[in-house]
């Protein structure tokens, strides 16, 4: 398909009207890229087959800038939702996809986003089965917003629940933290700094499936610390289970360049967003096997056991610092802000 010969180079209000222009946009850009038996029905919705229990998760993506090192809003919209479904202990199967486009978005940009969505969906093994496109006036959006909803089949051996967590369970993280947030930060207007930091945005569903195949109900919980970062998610877990969380700073995997960028901007990596990171809370009897499996998987090469669940200090996360002191890790309030000096 030649996107240079569509007869339009930017998307305007007419493309969301439901009329001729909408049809042109859908046929030329969306259906041609995503073509599959469900979408090709061109029905109001999709009828799909599912087996066993179903996991559903929805998320909206409003990121600025829409293109960044390591991905774009499109790939992110797939990974984010695929991972949320996977965190429920499920195998993601289908996605819905809805766009809210601000008029003036370039067709080339939109096409690149769509191609990224297709690639990310294929890599994650999910099919886009239904969708929607709306266009809003200039100034009423921020280039493009995307909503995706994911549907997955719960793994037959999965028993993911806060209720299963016991004192002594281990907390394992699959890789380097804070990459996504710092990649975005390095390209934000006014903050641009030279770096090779790439977003870690990726699909985690295959690693999750392998873990469930191997360890079943010995895996108590999966959680992906996206917004709010690792610190906020651990705090949520501690307060939800009314037990303590104890972690060691020295065990938390962080890439040197990311640590340096955080230091420079005065940000705490514990609160910086991730898009390819998850924690698994596992029975202590399998901690080493889980770690070994993760480290043998492409998405878990830098996995590390960062801490455990404790009876002491219920509802709190306590961190042992690099120099051996202790402090609590509180949840993030608002956005992390750049410091004065």
């Amino acid at each position: 398909m030649d996107i240079n010969n569509l007869g339009f180079t930017t998307i305007n209000l007419g493309h969301g009207s439901g009329g001729e222009l909408t049809r042109k946009l859908l046929d030329n850009l969306i259906f041609s890229v995503f073509s599959n038996p469900y979408l090709n029905e061109k029905h109001d919705g999709a009828i799909v087959k599912m087996e066993g229990k179903m996991a559903i998760s929805t998320d909206s993506f409003v990121i600025t800038p829409i293109f960044f090192k390591g991905g774009n809003i499109g790939s992110l919209a797939v990974h984010g939702t695929v991972n949320d479904v996977a965190m429920c202990g499920a195998i993601p199967k289908y996605l819905s996809l809805a766009f809210i486009i601000e008029e003036g978005l370039g067709v080339v940009e939109f096409y690149n986003i769509i191609k990224s969505i297709k690639k990310a969906a294929d890599e994650s093994g999910v099919i886009i089965v239904t969708g929607d496109t709306k266009v809003v006036e200039k100034g009423k959006g921020d280039k493009i917003f995307i909503n995706t909803t994911g549907f997955g089949e719960v793994h037959p051996k999965a028993s993911i629940s806060m209720d299963n967590i016991n004192v002594g369970d281990r907390i394992i993280v699959n890789g380097f933290i804070a990459q996504h947030g710092m990649a975005i930060m390095s390209e934000r207007k006014g903050l641009e700094f030279e770096s090779d930091i790439q977003s870690d945005s990726t699909n985690l569903n295959y690693l999750v499936k392998d873990l469930l195949d191997a360890f079943g109900n010995k895996i108590k919980l999966f959680r992906d610390p996206t917004r709010g970062g690792l610190g906020t998610v651990l705090h949520e877990i501690a307060t939800d289970i009314e037990l303590g969380v104890f972690i060691k700073e020295v065990q938390i995997p962080i890439e040197k360049q990311v640590a340096a960028a955080c230091e420079m901007l005065g940000l705490d990596p514990m609160y910086v967003a991730n898009e390819g990171v998850f924690i698994a809370i596992v029975d202590p009897s399998v901690e080493n096997e889980v770690l070994a499996l993760m480290r043998n998987h492409e998405k878990g090469k830098n996995a590390s056991i960062i801490g455990e669940i404790t009876e002491e200090h219920p509802n709190k996360v306590v961190l042992k610092s690099l120099i051996g002191g202790k402090r609590i890790v509180s949840p993030l309030v608002g956005e992390q802000l750049p410091r004065i000096c």
Partner: peptide, 24 residues
């Protein structure tokens, strides 16, 4: 001092008092 847990590693007799050096 607080973030690295230094206060609790000091002797009890050494008491840190926090000064006015916060511009905000």
């Amino acid at each position: 001092l607080v973030k690295n847990g230094i206060l609790e590693l000091l002797p009890e007799k050494v008491r840190m008092i926090h000064g006015p050096g916060c511009p905000v």
